[in-house]
Design a protein around this nucleic acid. Structure first.
Lengths: 140, 140
DNA sequence: TTCAATTCTGTAATTATTACAATTTTATTT
DNA sequence: AAATAAAATTGTAATAATTACAGAATTGAA
C-alpha cells in the first residue's frame, strides 16, 4: 500500500503536502518535531508553510494516523508508528528510541474498576543511550 | 519533619518562597502547573514573582525534591510525590490522578541489556475520569 | 557593620503554537 | 470547459509558556 492509499485508509484526503508529511513520518523513525519535518520537506516543497505542518499533524493525530509524544520538554514530537510501543529518550543527545511495550492487563483493569475509561497508554523511559555512554567514557 | 527540614534533606536552602512552594506541592496532589502555584501563593506572598516559581521548581527537580510531568500538552505540571507511581489524565476535565505503577522488571532489564541506562520511568494513561463519564451521561 | 554571595524580582526576549484572513487548489455542477 | 462551491494551504499576526538577564533585596560570614 502506498502513502496515498494509506492516508485514505484513515479517512484523510491525500494532498501533496499530506502525502509528503506522512511519507516522512513512515520512513523516518526519529520521532521528529514540527521543525524537523518542516525543514526536511522544505527542499522538495519550497512553498510549504509551517502552519500546514501543524495543521496536518493535528489532522493525522485526530484520525489516528500518527501519535503525538510529549516526552521531550521542549516541543511535541510525532510518531507514524501507531502500534503499541514504549520509548526511551536519551537525556544527553535527546534522541528518542523505540522500545517494546509490555502492557500490564491487571494494571489497566484496576484503573477501569475505579471507573476510569482508559483510551491511551503512555510509557517511556529516560536515561543515557549506548552511544552517549560510550562518548562520555571516551572523554576520561 | 517540617518543610524546612524537608528541603534541607534535599540539599536545598530554605527560603520563604521555597518553603511556600514546597509546602503547596506536598499539600496539594493536583499536579499543579506554574500558574496554579503562582496564583495560589500570590495572596500570602504578594511580592512573589512568577520567575521565582519557575526557578524554584527547576531547582526542586534538579535536587530530586519534585518531578516534572509533561503529560498535559499545554504546559508542564509538577508533582511533590517523588515515589514511583503512574498517572491518569482525563481528556475531558484535564485533571491528573495518581495511579499505582507496576514496574516490569523484565522490561527494564531488556532495555539495560541493550546498553541503555534507565534513570526515569514514566507511565501514564489518558481517557475519561468517573466524574466526567457521569456528567456526560447526565446530558443525554 | 561591611562585604560577598545568594536569592528574588520584573521586564524583555525567545520560542512554540494558534488564530485567521486571503489565496490557491480541488471537486462539483452547469 | 466554464462557473461555482468547498476544502486546503499559506503567511502574518497574536497568544502563551518559558528563559535570559540585570538590578534589588536578602542572607551569611568576616
Amino acid at each position: 500500500m502506498n502513502v496515498y492509499e494509506y492516508l485514505l485508509s484513515y479517512d484523510i484526503k491525500p494532498s501533496v503536502q499530506r502525502i509528503a508529511i506522512m511519507d516522512y513520518l513512515l520512513k523516518h523513525h526519529t520521532h521528529p518535531c514540527i521543525d524537523e519535518i518542516y525543514m526536511a520537506l522544505h527542499d522538495d516543497i519550497p512553498t510549504l508553510s509551517k502552519t500546514t505542518v501543524y495543521n496536518t499533524l493535528k489532522l493525522f493525530v485526530e484520525h489516528g494516523a500518527a501519535k503525538m509524544l510529549t516526552i521531550d520538554e521542549r516541543n511535541a514530537c510525532f510518531d507514524g508508528d501507531t502500534s503499541a510501543h514504549a520509548h526511551f529518550q536519551c537525556k544527553c543527545c535527546g534522541k528518542i528510541f523505540d522500545m517494546p511495550m509490555h502492557i500490564n492487563e491487571k494494571a489497566i483493569n484496576d484503573i477501569a474498576d475505579k471507573g476510569f475509561s482508559v483510551e491511551e497508554i503512555h510509557n517511556y523511559y529516560k536515561g543515557v543511550c549506548p552511544d552517549c555512554k560510550k562518548n562520555n567514557s571516551d572523554k576520561n
